[in-house]
Write a protein that binds this DNA or RNA. Structure first.
Lengths: 253, 253
DNA sequence: AAACCCATTTGATACAAGTCATTTTGAGCA
DNA sequence: TGCTCAAAATGACTTGTATCAAATGGGTTT
């Protein structure tokens, strides 16, 4: 493990329940992600009620599914540790990676419109997640307007972030797309109290390419070019952002 | 006006309130779109309560805004007649058309996450819309679980349709993108009881190109090619689908 | 430590779509 | 009837990214 590793790997041998993010018994109240996750809009006693419906399972191994396409839809999920990717498969079997989710982020909301999932979610590395049964969430929302509102907002945010991706795919070059993704990961790491400068990408080059509408080769070439231009230091999945400003200018072109 | 005109132009001189889709005083109960729109999931008396909060304005002229970027968010909207396009503008001023909305369809949901709109909506032709104040809708949802559920579903559908567009932009060629859009418009017209074979595109070639991540020239060339190959008859915005099957095969490639 | 696997990188070439320039078409209007 | 203007179509040329092919390198198994 390098110095840029995920926090989830640092406290593995701790005996304190609260300190271990893979621990299944931690409550929403004590979860270190609660400032990023569903509880953010809630009062203390409301968090307690939310906590009661949240189900926490054992950690997921890399490449194992949270849910698969055509599974019955029953819940939405929050990442507690590790990272998740979601993807859809169209009629012709073409896979589209639709999102990368880091601790504190919610996924699985596309299933709400249907009785069954139209996408799949898999762990990109060892991960633990919270499952929030949707029918219970609906009931709770009715007695807790702030939760209903927050959940509306979450879905709306998903819509606007999808639309940003649409613009990225529709209007930007390969370099601009990669720069934008790197800055997004960087910012989300920073939000979680980690470094936005040095971090480990949880996903493969193939995943990045699929997500950004590029081939693996193009993604690899862009990384090499960025390194050559002194914007990044790249060592496989370890990234060090050297020239944030230049990267931002690229992303904003 | 040709034979392929919108129904909104056919009944203009009718004296019956119910028959004129531009008429502002029509209720949800009587609206011919209610089987496609919000009331679909509701009981009769629930539709009445929804009807009470819906505000109907005078018809909008072509190119006039329903809302503009940075306008305060206060409502979501349903198209009653005509057609609406939505677009966003990023920091660099790049415009991305994010959707085309036909009668019975709901738009404006991306504003929920923010206090102000992050996109704009304009009429592509004379249109009338229903405004549904969001705070009233939230209140109503709390006492009407079927409405809450339906609205969750609507937002989730918006997410999945955005993700389909992401796949289209990320994985498909110019011809495949155009074919897919044409079939989408066709299917939505058919759903509204109009012809899925002969119809008028409400949007310009530039709008189509912007939406699909293509230049105007490419869109124009694809239309010409489709015509030459006997898939379509194109006369400016009037479209006749000649070979639906071939078009579907293209879209599903 | 050899053998293998798989992700990643790098290079050479092809092609789909973009860019730039020009023409055609049609609608609105004097 | 002809003028103006914008949308759309067409043609010639360029280019960014895909494709195909091969090399590199790290990790795991035997």
């Amino acid at each position: 493990m390098t110095a840029i590793s995920e926090p989830s790997d640092l406290s593995r041998n701790s005996t304190m329940t609260v300190a271990c993010p893979h621990n299944a018994s931690i409550s929403c109240t004590d979860c270190r992600m609660n400032s990023l996750c569903l509880p953010i809009a809630l009062e203390y006693d409301e968090v307690e009620r939310l906590n009661e419906i949240v189900q926490r399972g054992r950690p997921l191994q890399k490449d194992s599914h949270v849910y698969d396409i055509a599974d019955e839809f029953s819940a939405v999920y929050a990442v507690r540790s590790g990272s998740i990717k979601t993807y859809s498969v169209n009629e012709q079997g073409v896979i589209q990676v639709t999102g990368f989710y880091l601790p504190g982020e919610i996924f699985g909301m596309d299933g709400i419109a249907h009785t069954h999932h139209v996408s799949a979610a898999v762990a990109m590395e060892t991960a633990s997640i919270c499952e929030i049964p949707f029918s219970r969430l609906e009931e709770l929302s009715i007695t807790m307007p702030s939760l209903q509102r927050h959940f509306f907002k979450l879905m709306s945010k998903e819509i606007t972030s999808d639309q940003q991706l649409i613009t990225l795919l529709s209007k930007n070059s390969a370099e601009e797309r990669v720069a934008t993704l790197l800055l997004s990961i960087s910012a989300r790491n920073a939000k979680r109290g980690l470094s936005g400068i040095r971090f480990r990408l949880p996903m493969s080059r193939a995943d990045i390419g699929n997500y950004l509408g590029l081939t693996v080769e193009t993604v690899s070439r862009v990384f090499s070019r960025f390194q050559k231009q002194g914007l990044l230091n790249v060592d496989k999945k370890e990234i060090e952002v050297v020239d944030t400003l230049a990267l931002q200018e690229l992303a904003n072109t």
